[in-house]
Design a protein around this nucleic acid. Structure first.
Lengths: 223, 223
DNA sequence: GCATGATTTATACAGGTGTTTGAATTATTT
DNA sequence: AAATAATTCAAACACCTGTATAAATCATGC
């Protein structure tokens, strides 16, 4: 039965991508099976191999989409915030990313996928670095450098950026622990996330200013 | 041939534990096979099941050892640092933990195992929280609270601790990314790690002091 | 020295994984 | 409408995983 086709039936390939993106972002490459993807996409098991050669092929395509999407989004956000002072841009960066990662209402599989790959890499890591991390890292570098009053080549820039990013990512990745440390029934509401973002912002801003006051570290090389 | 036994032959059970600890800490529960453990331990495949019931049983025993070992170590370190001001204790905590995680010469599988479980949990997570995290967390809480000039119940305590710990753990977990961002041939030498630890310390100390200057956040509940 | 129990071994099992295959079906072109 | 290409499907394959079994080996106490 051709499903009275056309309207409902998004092309199979696209459905596979959608389902895979969601699952991969949530649980990682190794903890998702091809069968599960195909079942949720309403396709036969062989669908993945036909359309993407193999599981890794599908994953890499999802990664590519994530990288492109994130770049587009972040360029837009940073452009919009360009006139603001670097302090405000930092605050925006933190709040936005944290919401993407923590808010269950947000459905930003892209940010989650990149975060996961950063910490639990697969053969697609190089792809994500080239297409997802390097293109935007300069932009953030400039923001931090401005706050530091230093040049982009200063090793403190990269260190401070990592210190900020570490806090953001850690709250996402250590959620299982947090859930057990906090009173039962705890949930990440938008308000709580805002409060958290503000903490990270204040903490980080002070940290960066402290780094600015110190001499350039002796080791010229990163990190 | 009985291997002229007695001297060389550590009891099989112990050899399995040693090998498993190393492998689990390095690659995580799911990325290590029973066969691999047994082979490196010079045992038959059934060895794990005979001595530990199943793979998870072995893992839990390793986790137990890690938790106990870490507690002992940290209590000692913190006791030794007790007379020092909280600033110095913070510095010590950061430097020590970072060396455990990053220095390839250190062979601290315990710290690595706990770090991994924090970020990529297994059914042994509850065990690690009860035996490995909770017992020492109060101690660190006091250190942070002292720096903040706040009481242990203040939500800022936990947040600041996480901000510090996030930076430490992140440098470990994002090593695959770092290795690709830095010039080829880069290595974590003890000197570089020391420099990094100093950065995290200065960054964090300023962050904590900034948090101390702000009012207690509105949301009473963690995090 | 032998019998009993503990340990180790070789082998097999059962389940899950990604992938392949060749036929059936659908869509497109002529 | 027929022919050709593209897609989907059910089934099976090959491999790897943790685990179980039953025999073989070892150690130990009588």
């Amino acid at each position: 039965m051709p499903e009275s086709a056309g309207l409902i039936d998004v092309e199979t390939r696209q459905r596979l991508l959608n389902v895979a993106a969601e699952l991969f972002a949530e649980r990682g490459f190794n903890n998702v099976t091809v069968r599960e993807i195909c079942q949720l996409a309403g396709t036969n098991v062989a669908g993945v191999n036909y359309h993407f050669r193999d599981k890794l092929g599908l994953y890499k395509e999802v990664v590519q989409l994530a990288a492109d999407g994130m770049n587009r989004l972040k360029v837009d956000v940073m452009n919009a915030a360009e006139p603001e002072p670097p302090e405000e841009r930092l605050r925006t960066y933190i709040r936005l990313t944290l919401h993407h990662l923590l808010d269950p209402h947000e459905e930003s599989w892209m940010e989650k996928l990149i975060a996961r790959e950063t910490i639990d890499p697969t053969p697609a890591l190089d792809l994500i670095i080239e297409k997802g991390i390097k293109p935007t890292s300069q932009r953030y570098g400039r923001m931090i450098a401005e706050l530091l009053g230093a040049s982009l080549g200063d090793p403190r820039v990269w260190r401070c950026f990592l210190s900020v990013h570490a806090q953001i990512l850690f709250y996402k990745m250590s959620m299982p622990v947090s859930m057990r440390m906090f009173p039962p029934g705890f949930k990440y509401t938008p308000e709580i996330i805002d409060g958290l973002a503000e903490h990270i912002y204040q903490f980080s801003l002070a940290g960066i200013r402290a780094a600015a006051a110190l001499p350039r570290s002796t080791t010229e090389c990163y990190p």
